[in-house]
Write a protein that binds this DNA or RNA. Sequence first.
DNA 1: AATGAATGAGATTTCATTCAT
DNA 2: TATGAATGAAATCTCATTCAT
Lengths: 196, 196, 196, 196
Amino acid sequence: MVYTRHVKAQRSNSRNEALLEAAAHRFAVQGFRATSMRDIARAVGMLPGSIYYHFPSKDDLLLAIYQAGVEQITAEFEAAVEPLDDPWDQLEAGMAALVLAVTEESAYTRVIFKVMPDEVPKHRKKLVAFRDLFEANIRDLVERLPLQPWVDKHLLRLMILGAGNHAQLWFSAEGDYSADEIGRAFSRYLKDSVSK
Amino acid sequence: MVYTRHVKAQRSNSRNEALLEAAAHRFAVQGFRATSMRDIARAVGMLPGSIYYHFPSKDDLLLAIYQAGVEQITAEFEAAVEPLDDPWDQLEAGMAALVLAVTEESAYTRVIFKVMPDEVPKHRKKLVAFRDLFEANIRDLVERLPLQPWVDKHLLRLMILGAGNHAQLWFSAEGDYSADEIGRAFSRYLKDSVSK
Amino acid sequence: MVYTRHVKAQRSNSRNEALLEAAAHRFAVQGFRATSMRDIARAVGMLPGSIYYHFPSKDDLLLAIYQAGVEQITAEFEAAVEPLDDPWDQLEAGMAALVLAVTEESAYTRVIFKVMPDEVPKHRKKLVAFRDLFEANIRDLVERLPLQPWVDKHLLRLMILGAGNHAQLWFSAEGDYSADEIGRAFSRYLKDSVSK
Amino acid sequence: MVYTRHVKAQRSNSRNEALLEAAAHRFAVQGFRATSMRDIARAVGMLPGSIYYHFPSKDDLLLAIYQAGVEQITAEFEAAVEPLDDPWDQLEAGMAALVLAVTEESAYTRVIFKVMPDEVPKHRKKLVAFRDLFEANIRDLVERLPLQPWVDKHLLRLMILGAGNHAQLWFSAEGDYSADEIGRAFSRYLKDSVSK
DNA sequence: AATGAATGAGATTTCATTCAT
DNA sequence: TATGAATGAAATCTCATTCAT
């Protein structure tokens, strides 16, 4: 599936995906600034200058990746959450989807959690908007939970987000737990404390 | 208080601290790579080359900041936790200290959570060692908690760390909650679920 | 003739040769350290940064020049020596070729005698290997001479090499003698003393 | 023995010698440009700025070393040559002294053969003059030799000089021959060919 | 659609030198 | 005599980007 339908910058479609995939991978692993256009070009077997036929700038590459990432994560989130009825089941599934997103092989989603909008002043606002789009998924999730009156939904959402994002730093495919298990464990560590 | 006593690279003490402070501030705000030696020099009223009288390289500057940060955060942690007897009180105080550390004005501690060891290959191992030193504080905290048998202490520690670190991204001094309140809220969101 | 066929660093061929030629000239005249990339760039009408498209570093530029120089000098040596049968005629021709090499217009060979391997730690071993390759030419020459038993071939070779190399320091195109004459004179100053 | 009597630049005498000795050693080993004032300062246990109390510049340091070197080598030359009557014995002793000078522990003399006047434009003329002073020793030596009419004394002197200087590049204290033996061998390799 | 070549701005770093103390 | 601190110029190198082909 291609998640780049609305990116205006690109011109063709054949190599774009490979380019995005490669760039996303490097950005997710090395970070945005530490990745050079040369790195990306080498990864797809092009020369650096050739990238500019497909994307007008490095910043725009990132923007396209962000967009693709948000579309993907939202789709995954909905697929995991919507079939369920119980809000706590939804939380469990949602956190599992979140941990999966920050750790999964496909790099689009990981970039969103690795590269901060401040690193790309030119697109800062748009990147923040994309992040908000994604975070709305979690906001909705928390909104539906029946919580103790002393629980601040805003803080709870940020705690969930933080715990999930952080997994990108320590998750290992060979570790004791799968991304799914980690997400579900996290939700269980919260549930009884905050549920009404 | 000066937290740089053991850094070998520095030679004197007068401008070193100003240099560390300025560098830490830029690193915490902009990130390591996005901060140039010129930025740091300007912040302390020096020329770029003059920095090298005090620190042999940009990488070593970061190392000194990391060290100072770990010393500071450990001191703060101990000051907050040790006076208390009840493990759950300790958790509450510890999480408050953590959130304080990632958000406080002094930038030494924030740098530890903002700049990842991978960004500085030359010192990666040492930086990781410093981080481990700090994380041991939280490990000890969790170790002392009387937990339900189904709770994995390893995962719980990582959840706490993630939730706390993340605050650096959204905390605002003018927000509804103080760092202290945020840390205590987070600990309450966990306590009843996982305690025996 | 191009003497750079096997240098991996270079990518194309059009400006590379001009670059090598210019760099070799400066290195031969000013020495390696005293020659800046800016000097070289100016000599070929580029900006300093542009050189790095063709060669990854100043050290690698020198390496390529060394290689070209050794290939050239070996070719010249063989062309001068091989047609001859008598070992003493070969010595005469060889010494002439040596003096020519250290004084000739083309700078590739002069660089080998001007820039010592120690000046470029990164490539020291390779540079020494190239020098050895060249010196083998003279070793072979001496090996074939019928010498008095009290003559040490090793010392004789070093004496020849030293006398020849040194010409780079004082040779003048407008002087009384051509490079060829100098080489032949030197061989004559030795012959009767050491020949059997 | 101090060989710096006439250097005007210096102000005192106590640390000057240590400074010259250290600088000469680094210059002889690493070359002039590759040796930093910091290197020299470290070698004598000073800070870089302190050197300027004793010598007004790096260039002047070299000048003083050159002068000391020429005085020393001339003294050694005379001590070796003057007692002898036969010109060929003198040549043998002179070449031995030359090889000794370019290889001996004391670095003053080695610097003269390692650092070329062109490397220090500010003092080029003076450095050349010092070299000439030294080379006059060899000129005199050759002048007294009874030579075949076809031998060019100028060329012969340059050949001797080249063969001798070159030893600095390959001489090893643990090698098969002493400096003395090398010099004498070289003179023997020439004598019978050129003597009348 | 891509390449080869270059640009130009800026990065980190080095280093001879200065100067108040 | 020497130091601590800094300067300022220049060095090597990186890199996003451009552009003719």
